Computed example of a mutant assay.
Amino acid sequence: MSKKNAKLHALDGAEMTAEGLSFKGTILEPVVEQCEGCERAIEFDSKNYCPSYAQPAKKWSHGVCNFATHARAGVDKEGKVKVNPLKASKRAARGR
């Protein structure tokens, strides 16, 4: 199946309700500004929705969305690479 057909079928069975877009028993919210450019976003009734996560604003509230195809989460605000503190302590103990 090609990517174009996969996108068409990603929201197959979704319907617009008074609360929002209903898909598989979940209400999907429209994507936020940070999601623009993501390959996962699918247009439905002139609005873009993410079939991977129902509330895109919450995914972006703590940094970069892990589903985003257009952004990376490797660097924090100071420009340093994020390192797991447990792994860092083990490396220090080994002398690396």
Rank of each mutant, 00 (worst) to 15 (best):
V32R: 10
S46C: 11
R94V: 12
K58W: 03
G63D: 00
C50P: 08
H62S: 14
Q55F: 09
M1Q: 07
A88V: 07
V31E: 12
E36A: 12
N48S: 12
S22G: 05
M1G: 09
K59L: 01
E36T: 08
C35I: 10
Y53Q: 00
N84D: 15
E19M: 11
K7R: 15
R96N: 13
L86N: 08
V83R: 13
K80P: 02
G74V: 03
E43Y: 02
A93H: 06
A92M: 07
A6E: 05
F44L: 05
K59M: 11
Q34G: 05
Q34Y: 05
W60R: 04
A18T: 06
I27N: 07
A18I: 05
M1L: 07
L28K: 10
R40E: 14
F44C: 04
C38I: 12
F67D: 13
E39Y: 08
E29I: 06
A41V: 06
D76G: 14
A10S: 15
Q55N: 15
E43G: 02
K7N: 06
K4I: 03
M1N: 06
V75M: 12
V32Q: 13
C65N: 03
E78L: 00
D76P: 04
R91S: 10
V32F: 05
Q55Y: 09
F67A: 13
P85T: 04
L28D: 08
E29M: 12
Y49G: 09
Y53K: 00
V75C: 06
A68V: 06
A6R: 13
A14I: 08
S22Q: 15
G20H: 12
E33N: 14
K4E: 04
E39M: 13
R40A: 15
D45V: 10
L28H: 11
T17G: 14
P30S: 06
I27L: 13
E33C: 06
G74Q: 00
K58V: 11
N48Y: 14
G95Y: 08
K82Q: 10
G37K: 13
D76A: 12
V81H: 00
E43L: 05
P51W: 01
G95L: 10
H70P: 01
H62M: 08
S2L: 03
K3P: 01
A93R: 11
D45P: 00
F23C: 06
K58R: 10
A57S: 11
T69Y: 05
C35P: 01
L11S: 04
A10N: 10
E39V: 09
I27F: 09
P30Q: 04
E39L: 14
E43H: 02
R94L: 14
G25L: 05
